[in-house]
């Protein structure tokens, strides 16, 4: 049951979807007093694209950057898989919606994540399992960019390219900021795309806030496992958050919340060019 009136829209006109989802994300985090907004705002458009325009019945998705749970919950809300009541429980005592995706309680969430460097291996297992069972469907996995500091990511990369898991698509939310510095300062992995290509992946770079471009990229035919390197903005859509590391952590106060909501509303009114 879809409860948000956002279903069945055209991939070329997603302005309303993006605005409503962003406002709902801000509201959820504000009401719960929870930070981690920066990385959620960088991932939100990718998740909206996946849940509205990419994922089909037999497909599976693993959110490897578990700190993007807020964006995931809002994306699930936007397709009607979670309700407003569910979102109001985010981070509360006795909630199903923990700060990172839970192991049980939400059927659309296949795996609990939050410790970085797990999701891609899990996605590899799902993709390999589908092949062994002769099952239809694809597997998608969203990692962060800082997550690629984890050695286990590279283990999984070796595995998926060696095994030719062409039913797996990996998307990297490259917002350029991680826990305590920029990705370039902490452990520079750029050019990331060249590294993935050298391992044997097909690689596409896209604007990670352009839903139509993401959609085109993940649906592009590929003979090798596909990596979509999505260039994103941490805190996207809220000027005082954009590319500011502290918004990896900080919750909003009332004034900031109002300011953020106004910006999102105004930006969408000004821009008729839907991403």
């Amino acid at each position: 049951m879809r409860n948000s009136g956002l279903a069945n829209m055209d991939v070329a006109s997603t302005g309303d979807l993006r605005r409503i989802a962003k406002l709902r994300l801000l509201q959820m985090h504000y009401e719960s007093g929870v930070g981690h907004l920066g990385g959620n705002l960088s991932a939100l458009d990718i998740l909206l694209c996946l849940y509205h325009f990419v994922l089909r019945k037999d497909d599976l998705f693993v959110l490897s950057k578990g700190h993007g749970a807020g964006a995931l919950y809002v994306a699930l809300w936007s397709i009607g898989a979670l309700t407003d009541d569910d979102l109001r429980q985010f981070h509360k005592e006795g909630t199903r919606l923990s700060g990172h995706p839970p192991a049980f309680g939400i059927p659309e969430i296949v795996f609990a994540t939050g410790s970085l460097g797990h999701g891609l291996g899990l996605a590899c297992g799902l993709a390999l399992g589908k092949k062994l069972k002769g099952e239809a469907g694809r597997v998608f996995c969203l990692t962060s960019d800082g997550e690629w500091n984890e050695g286990s990511c590279w283990e999984s990369l070796i595995f998926l390219t060696h095994r030719g898991l062409d039913n797996l698509t990996m998307i990297v939310d490259c917002n350029g900021l991680q826990g305590f510095g920029t990705t370039r300062e902490v452990a520079n992995l750029e050019p990331l795309s060249e590294k993935f290509r050298a391992f044997g992946m097909d690689v596409l770079e896209v604007d990670g806030h352009a839903i139509q471009d993401i959609h085109t990229a993940v649906n592009q035919g590929h003979s090798r496992p596909l990596a979509v390197v999505a260039r994103t903005i941490k805190g996207c859509g809220v000027s005082f958050m954009e590319n500011q590391m502290e918004w990896h952590y900080l919750p909003l106060n009332a004034q900031q919340y109002e300011l953020a909501c106004n910006e999102v509303k105004q930006a969408c009114e000004m821009s008729s060019a839907d991403h």
Binding site: G121, L122, C124, G125, G129, S156, I158, F159
Partner: peptide, 14 residues
């Protein structure tokens, strides 16, 4: 590490 994650993914599919 990857081997155990892969195993979890396989087990999830039965």
């Amino acid at each position: 590490q990857n081997m155990v994650s892969v195993a979890a993914g396989l087990a999830k599919l039965g």
